[in-house]
Structure formats: structure tokens, C-alpha cells
Amino acid sequence: MTWNRPRSPIAPALLLLLLTTAVPTDPARGGDDDATAPPPAPLVLFDGKALDGWEPTDFYKPGEVAVEDGAIVLGLSPASGGMTGITSTRTDLPRTDYELSYRAKRVSGRDFFAAATFPVGETYLTLVNGGWGGTVTGLSSIDGADASENLTGTFREYENGTWYAFKVRVTDASIRCWVDDEQIVTFDPRGHHLGTRLETSFNQPLGFATWETSGAIKEIVIRPLSPEEVAAETQAAESP
């Protein structure tokens, strides 16, 4: 004689409950919450007090590098045609989809006083400010041509002792640069060969340099761009 145990009426009901109950989203796995997640925090690269995260650039006979009055001062090189600079030692810098901002002034001299070398994907560019005798501002180098020779070069006067606000925005489709509130460069890097001059290669991955000039830099910040900002840059670059 075979004995069949009757099924419990609870089992089907429990199975139905498990199948129809929503599983909470694990924030660590992403999901809908990602769309409203705050953007990554800006990276403050200089606190106005110490050179943590920086080292003097290995130029030939550079001037003294010091922190004075909340700024990094790049002293005048004693060598003819000499350069002074600082280079970041951080390993967490973004290579695209970011905005670099800083303030700089020429203390003495008449050439570039805070040329900024920065990453662009797998390569680098330098925003020269006041080069070639004091006024040329633009990106070096594009297709082997310096800022004085390529389409990004422009002329701008800089007064010694005056602070200027610089901003560089980098995406795969666009590089834009500002001095104070004036946009001075808009450039689509796709299809071009990018690279720095040999001298400023010592500032990679991120750094600043002077040429026969003393300069000061402060308020150095990198801000990752939001997906919306990246999309807007791409759309603007592709608009006729």
C-alpha cells in the first residue's frame, strides 16, 4: 500500500509571493539610483600650504620652488633660456572628461608664467600662456605645430603682478580653454596628432612651467565632468 502525503496549501502561496515580490536594488551594483548619483568630487590639487602631491620639475638649472602667501611660486631660473616648474605625483588624475582650473600670475619676466601640461586621453598637451615674447596663448603641440603656429594660437596681453583665472575642459571630442571669462580655444582633437614639446614633457602627467620668467599658481582643481556635460561638449563639437 502506497501512502501519498497531501500537499501543503502554503507552498504554492509562498512560491507566488517570492516570484512577485520586488527585490530591492543594491546600490553597490548600480541601477536606477546611478542616474541620480552625485558627480565625483573635485580633486583639490593644492591646499595653499604645502607641496604635497607635487615635486619640482627636473629642468636644467631651475629656479627655486616655494609656497608663499597661499601660492606656489616658480622662481626665475639662473640659466639662460631656463625653465622652472612643478609636476604632479598623483596617480588618480583623470585623462578625459574633466575640467582643470587654476589661477596664475607673472611675477617678473616677459614670457609664459604658468604653462599647464595636462592629459588628453593617452597623450598630452600644454596650454601656453604668454609665450614667444609674452602674448601667444594656445595649445602646443598639434600635428607637430606649436601654439605660435597652429589654429589654437591667439594673442593676449598679461600684466605682471595680476592674477588670471584659467580653465581647461577636456573630452574626447573637444578641448576648450578660457582666460578669465573669455574662451580662447575651442578645438576638436579627433584626427590630430597631439603631443607636448620635449621641454614640457617633464611636466607630464600634469604640471606647470615658466620660461625666463617667475610665476605663481594657486587654486589648482580638477573637476570630473558629468555625463550631461560630456554629451553637451560632444554635441557642440559635432554641430555645423
Rank of each mutant, 00 (worst) to 15 (best):
V73W: 00
T20A: 13
L74A: 09
L15Q: 09
G48F: 07
E68H: 09
G81N: 10
K61G: 04
V65G: 06
Y60Q: 11
G48H: 04
P24V: 15
V23P: 01
G82K: 12
D34P: 14
D32W: 15
D32M: 12
D69N: 11
T36P: 06
P40A: 08
G63W: 00
E55K: 14
S80C: 03
A22Y: 15
V73D: 06
A13C: 11
P62N: 00
T20P: 09
A35G: 08
G85K: 03
P38L: 14
P40R: 04
L45T: 12
G53Q: 03
A41T: 01
P56C: 06
E68R: 15
V73Y: 00
P42F: 03
A41P: 01
A66I: 09
A50W: 11
L76A: 12
D69L: 07
L45R: 12
D52I: 02
D52A: 07
P38F: 11
V65M: 06
D32S: 14
V23Y: 04
A22V: 14
P62S: 04
G63V: 03
E64W: 02
G53T: 02
T84H: 05
G31C: 12
T36H: 14
L74I: 08
S77V: 09
L17G: 09
T25Y: 11
L14Q: 04
P12M: 07
I86R: 01
V73F: 01
P24K: 15
D47V: 02
P78H: 06
T20S: 14
T20R: 06
T87M: 00
P62L: 00
G63I: 02
G53R: 02
D34R: 15
A79P: 03
S77R: 07
G81P: 08
P62Y: 03
V44N: 08
A22L: 15
K49V: 07
V67P: 00
W54D: 00
P42E: 03
V23H: 05
G30S: 10
A66D: 14
A35T: 11
P39T: 02
G48D: 07
W54E: 02
D34V: 15
Y60D: 12
K49F: 04
G70S: 07
S88N: 00
V23S: 04
P38K: 13
D47Q: 01
L14Y: 01
T25N: 12
T21N: 03
A41H: 02
D33Y: 10
T25W: 13
Y60A: 12
D69H: 10
A79F: 05
E64L: 06
K61W: 07
D58T: 13
I72W: 01
T57I: 07
P40K: 06
F59I: 07
P39D: 05
A41Q: 03
